[in-house]
Design a protein around this nucleic acid. Structure first.
Length: 116
DNA sequence: CATCTGACGACCG
DNA sequence: GCGGTCGCCAGAT
């Protein structure tokens, strides 16, 4: 499975904002849901500008275990994201992906399929 | 091929 | 609000 789409999407999260695994899963329509998004992030390569620290669990909870949790707290704080214990106030920092975040492609005008 | 495991999340008590 | 259960599913064993 290629997680590239996930990483690409994560890269679009602006500094100082956060999203949840569930959001990623829904935005990309990942089969396994949020858990799959988590799996992708767990395998995220470092040194490629992927702001993995901006991805949190539902409700803005930090789910990562030590020793990375420490780093995540640090990185978030450096972006002025306030932490209330192990959680972030989503009301203020949540980021929402654009509708067609799946690649940001310039939509062509082909026949659009109706959704549901 | 059978199990286990986890950077999840919705539910429930 | 906290902790436990259950559904999911791709990798790892």
């Amino acid at each position: 499975m290629s997680w590239k789409p996930v990483y690409q999407l994560v890269k679009t999260i602006p500094r100082g904002h956060v999203v949840t695994y569930g959001q990623i899963a829904r935005a990309l329509r990942l089969r396994g849901g949020a858990r799959t998004a988590g799996r992708a992030m767990a395998a995220a390569p470092s040194g490629q500008g992927i702001p993995w620290h901006r991805v949190l669990g539902a409700g803005g909870r930090m789910l990562i275990r030590e020793p990375y949790a420490q780093l995540q707290r640090q990185l978030l704080m450096s972006e002025s994201v306030e932490l209330h214990g192990a959680r972030v106030d989503m009301k203020r920092y949540a980021w929402t992906f654009p509708r067609n975040a799946k690649k940001q492609r310039t939509k062509k005008k082909g026949p659009r399929r109706k959704r549901r």
